[in-house]
Design a protein around this nucleic acid. Structure first.
Lengths: 198, 198
DNA sequence: GTGCGACTGGGACGACCGTCCCACTTCGGT
DNA sequence: ACCGAAGTGGGACGGTCGTCCCAGTCGCAC
């Protein structure tokens, strides 16, 4: 292993940890497994991080900050709100199908954070970030459809996040593409009714 | 510890394991923690079960079989379909608020099962059971509202399960009651549109 | 080139894990 | 009363965990 500065090592370890958590789950993300994935020795781990907990915290923070697969990157032009929303949800679904392990890892990290008092805020921040991204997408969608939301967009965003989570969780279990698309359709339908009638 | 037959001990251990998983998470549900919760010695554990894995498998099976907090136990009389569905979802939400640890435990057990090939079927069975209960509730609801579903009820049920999961997950993170009720409202709205217009 | 601080590797530590062994006690059938 | 089977308790096993120590090596400023 060549010589790397401590900060570089930190991010290399975070990336390695994300790969291990995605592939094998957080329970299997031991210091030794992470270090092996990064191709380092155990001592390097505790040179860069004080503890495994610190690494996991930074992993969650990093990965949440990076999160940006918004549900609606570029809405379909010419469609009405419902169609734009459904296209966005289907886009998210394709992202989920392309990298299911990543979403499963995010889910596990949330649950992990939920289990300790000092880590709970990380989970809250994660979902606040989701809601923020969702709110932005919803604003873009409404603007493209030439309409406005009939309540604060943050409230609609919260519902979108819940629908997305449900779609993710159920699809991860049964891998039923058609069912997931039905969820996307129904969710888009419900959300579109939260806009002012044109 | 008095003398108990092996089968009784098995179910006592399963109950103890459920309490430990609910309270502290599956990662903390060690053989010693479970045995302490049940007030037994370690030897009794391996007298009743061959391994911890066997206990966890039986825990999942048991708890899934017992699952019956259907979303719509007794629909409100006189309401239309949307109102009946929303009342059912709110009923589920009250159940979630009353015992959040149990739903969190169920979520963790699902994720745990998803992580190994031989346990994956348990997660699938868990969600098949959810869908079954949801389908039954939906049939009751449609019948009370005097309408019928415009597609196989199993498909609607799958969507309901996804919505319920999303509501659960997001509420467990932010504990925002109003937001959860908004999800229930939107979900009921979307689902009610999957019925034949009267 | 020399010194010093930053970085590295291997091995060890105590704690806890799942599992197992074995001497012991209790029970039900005879 | 007795005897085999069923159930119990304590202690120990090997393995893995997170963490730590320390002797060694490298890069860079002087």
């Amino acid at each position: 292993m060549g010589r790397i500065s401590a900060p570089e090592r930190r991010s290399a370890l975070v990336e390695a940890a994300l790969r291990v958590v995605s592939r094998r789950g957080i329970a299997q993300a031991t210091t030794r497994a992470i270090v092996a994935e990064a191709g380092m020795s155990l001592a390097s781990f505790h040179y860069a991080f004080e503890s495994r907990d610190e690494l996991i915290d930074e992993l969650i923070t990093t990965v949440v900050a990076r999160e940006q697969h918004a549900v609606l990157p570029e809405p379909v032009p010419g469609g009405d709100l419902r169609e734009i929303l459904e296209a966005g949800l289907l886009r998210y679904f394709e992202h989920l199908r392309a990298d299911p392990e990543h979403e499963q890892a995010m889910l596990e990290l949330t649950q992990y954070a939920l289990r300790s008092l000092e880590r709970h805020p990380l989970a809250v921040a994660q979902y606040a970030r989701y809601a923020e991204l969702a709110a932005h997408s919803l604003e873009v969608a409404a603007s493209h459809a030439g309409t406005t939301w009939d309540r604060p967009v943050e409230q609609v965003a919260r519902v979108l996040v819940a629908f997305t989570d449900g779609l993710t969780l159920t699809w991860l279990v049964d891998r039923d593409d058609d069912a997931a698309r039905a969820v996307a359709h129904a969710a888009a339908d419900a959300l579109s009714r939260m806009a002012e009638p044109r």
